[in-house]
């Protein structure tokens, strides 16, 4: 993230988590954190224990952030927020911890509506997955999936398609939900099956070469240690340990984590015009 991205992310974060902005200039920003944010960003568990036990009115801290090294405010003690700075890492962590699960209804655009008629919503489950390809090295990929909870249609890039729509946390009046036909666990099963397909159809040369390296290392260990019957107990366990270490170091695997997930109720008539992708494996 560039300084201006760090800045706009921070501003949105503070706003979304009810922190009070005291002063805001193009170069710096002063804020009094909300209680929730204070607990995430400022490490002072004893203070919170004390406040809660004694029933005292909490005093969240006030922080001043600058975003570029040469633009710190004069006279005020500020901290530089940049990608990689400890505080910004905490902000990113807090954002991920607190934005995991939603249930949202698409905002009523008001079009095609008569007063006495209730309009239906279609239920979708959206999940943002992080795939990590791991051996002695690692890389990640984010895959956004969405599944229609009535038809089972599966969409990649689901989140990007709904990103620009308006959402509300409450079911608007004169609206109703068409019940799902597929349960959430079933839908998740479908998604996982789909992901497995993606992974297996990928170029797996990274995993093959990691496996190859692992074999070489293991062969070298075999050549280094004497034959089984000549080894003392200590040497035996040493060799076993070396083998374990080697496997831990090289063994290729894929770890799939969920970043966040939500139930999204979409306007039926403005549902996706694009044809959903078919299952790659059938």
């Amino acid at each position: 993230m560039e300084p201006n991205q760090v800045k706009s992310f921070t501003e949105r974060f503070l706003k979304a988590y009810d922190c009070r902005i005291i002063e805001q200039t193009p170069d710096y920003l002063q804020t009094q954190l909300s209680v929730k944010t204070d607990k995430d960003l400022v490490h002072r568990p004893f203070y919170w224990m004390y406040v809660e036990k004694m029933g005292i009115k909490p005093q969240p801290v006030t922080l001043t952030f600058a975003f570029e090294p040469d633009k710190a405010p004069p006279k005020i003690r500020s901290e530089l927020l940049s990608f990689g700075s400890p505080r910004f890492s905490q902000i990113l962590k807090s954002a991920q911890k607190n934005g995991r699960f939603v249930r949202l209804y698409e905002n009523d655009s008001g079009r095609l509506r008569r007063r006495d008629e209730s309009k239906p919503y279609t239920p979708w489950l959206g999940v943002n997955y992080k795939l990590s390809y791991i051996c002695d090295q690692k890389k990640d990929e984010i895959i956004q999936l969405g599944i229609h909870l009535r038809t089972g249609d599966l969409l990649q890039g689901f989140f990007d398609r709904i990103r620009n729509r308006e959402w509300s946390s409450k079911l608007p009046t004169h609206r109703h939900i068409i019940p799902a036909l597929i349960s959430v666990p079933e839908a998740v099963g479908e998604m996982e099956y789909f992901l497995q397909g993606i992974i297996e159809q990928q170029d797996l040369s990274w995993a093959r070469s990691a496996e190859e390296r692992m074999k070489q290392e293991l062969a070298r260990l075999d050549a280094y240690y004497p034959e089984e019957w000549r080894m003392s107990d200590e040497l035996h366990s040493e060799k076993r340990q070396r083998i374990r270490e080697t496997i831990r170091q090289y063994h290729p695997k894929v770890e799939v984590e969920v970043i966040n997930a939500g139930l999204f109720y979409l306007d039926e008539d403005v549902s996706f015009h694009l044809t959903p992708k078919k299952h790659p494996i059938s």
Binding site: R12, F13, A16, N98, G99, R100, F101, N260
Partner: peptide, 11 residues
């Protein structure tokens, strides 16, 4: 449940 804005920030 979390909110739409917080959900976006998390991603």
């Amino acid at each position: 449940w979390s909110t739409w804005e917080r959900f976006q920030l998390a991603l």
